[in-house]
Design a protein around this nucleic acid. Sequence first.
RNA 1: GGCGCCUUCGUCUAGCGGCCUAGGACACUGGGUUUUCAUCCCAGGAAUCGCGGGUUCGAUUCCCGCAGGCGUCACCA
Length: 436
Amino acid sequence: MEKIRTRTAPSPTGFAHVGTAYGALFNYAFAKKNNGKYIIRLEDTDVKRNVEGAEKEILASLSWLGITWDEGPDSGGPHFPYKQSQRLEIYKEKVKELLNKKLAYEDDGAIKLKGSQDDIVWEDLIRGSITFPASEVNDFVIVKSDGYPTYHFAVVIDDHLMEISHVIRGEEHISNTPRQIALYKAFGWELPKFGHFPTLRGADRKKLSKRRDPVNLKIFRQEGYLPEALVNFLCLLGWSHPEGKEIFTIAEFVDNFSLDRVRKAGPVFDTQKLDWINGEYIRKTSDEELVKITLEHITGDVPEDFLLKVIPLIKERMAKLSEAQGLLEFFWQQPAWTKEIFEDPKSLEHLASANIALSGVKVWDLENINKALGEKIVKNEFKTGNFYMTLRLAMAGKRITPPINESMVILGQDQVLHRIHDAESILVSVESPEIQ
RNA sequence: GGCGCCUUCGUCUAGCGGCCUAGGACACUGGGUUUUCAUCCCAGGAAUCGCGGGUUCGAUUCCCGCAGGCGUCACCA
């Protein structure tokens, strides 16, 4: 059986894009599933558009997602170099070949390939037979007047030389394919197999745009999406697990991958489901691991072992790691209350009896706190929910918090009593107007 | 405009001629558990399968038109 080799060929013209990751995922999975090799090649022949540092960022983002490559600009390989700007000599040599065969000619400083005489047809791996009339494949530039090859020319030469067996790319390349096939034919080279997966769409159903859509992989990291979750989500766009599973690892994706389960229609990149998936992954992550990755989303000097104590309290409350800060900051920062937040007219009573109950707790643990507070609630006939809301407000200054008794255990008796006292004095001062 | 690709609940999708009075997931709504929020557990609404013709005993599934959407028409990739 022929050797399977796939590739992703990003241009270092900016940040790492979800579309790049999406395509990388399919190529990676197809290669791995079929015992093949996955290659990354940099297409940097447009000198003006190259951006400093983009190469590094793209590679870093892909490996953050857990995608690995067998050959590439950083790791090297038998077909080195993997950067088109370093392969200029190769292209020059190949142009000569076409010039000699009289299949290409010079025109205004550039070199053009003569268009196709025949209709161009190929059997697309994902879409079936696709035909373009010969009239659509006119003469086109293969070497620019600055001496650099155009995209079409460099792609074909590199894919051939790097023995790429399956060219799997986005559907926006469908109309490029006839020209590239014409090039293969001009050289007399064997055609690779082509497969065109759908492009990701924005809410407007147009292809993802830098302006309107969240497409920078770095942003996802900053927002606190786990790479495993993002990958999982991406896998679900245009592809579905044969058993209908929604949550699975990249390894499982590879095991189950096949091109015939790839849909043709372009999916809308709607991150609502990503949030759910991310939550699922957060809940599956161990506390220790979660602490490590949450740390970079916490501002302030919060020790790791402290985070380890509170992380279980918010684990099932977070969809994104970036929410940790808001959920936890009351632990290391006394809330700035205003009287308005204590809406319950019984707030003061709640606080007074909580104060008494908690002052009397000898051994400060959850069991004793529960017991002390429970007795007070019964005795004073408080409504449990209301009572705890007042307490929650006193501790955290907000209505949405981790479980409050557990939180108080961690906060410590002194701090808890201190906050109750402060909250009380705010209420007292409010309820004692000047008339007094 | 030419050429090409695509078209199932709001979104992601299953479906490859009868099992579909179209299944699942997210989101949404209602309920239960619960000290808030979540988690978890039930229940529910939600697609006349873009439209019109065929083929067939029978079409979401096959064929042909049309419409709409998207892509592409660079010395960008």
